[in-house]
Amino acid sequence: MAEAVAFWALAVAAVAGGVAVFVVDSMARATFALLASFLCVGLALLLIDLAYLGVLVVLMMVMEMMIMAVFMIMYMMNPAGFMPMTMVHNHRGALAISGAVFALLVAGIFLTPWPARRGVPAADPTRDLGMSIMGPKMLVMMVVGLAILATIVSAVVLAADRGRYDRYGDRPRGR
């Protein structure tokens, strides 16, 4: 009972956050409405005893949305963000497309022949997840991990070029 109440509260809050993204008139508020929506999804994972994945979603979403906030505001037509703005352009077309996609996804949920549960939940889902990632999927995860790290490092190297006034110590060429 309590689980059902929590699930529906989180579900409604997640959707409300998603709606708020397109209703609020500031990019900062839109960013945090989206973050609130993601956090509700992360908390919903806790309801099915996936503590590690749930907390990880909270961790990654907060970090990711804070970096996103920088870019969302940077690429705005009005970067200050205090003047009213809207996330929606082409009202009718946007409504038609998003309505159709939503209907398609909901239809998918109801029309999919979901398999019946076999076996029982693992005693420690975190451990099973780790064994799965580091066992049969080890090679894929290692390659993906290296690729992501290399991307991050090269992105930071490209972004953090030093300026002409930026030097260490008193010598003009101190770098």
């Binding site: 945090f32 503590a51 907390v55 909270v58 961790l59 907060v62 970090m63």
Partner: peptide, 18 residues
């Protein structure tokens, strides 16, 4: 004493960014 205590600490501390 959560089973994922270390990750929990990390996740909450990151909320400080926000």
């Amino acid at each position: 004493d959560l089973g994922v205590g270390v990750v929990w600490f990390n996740a909450m501390e990151v909320c400080g960014w926000a």
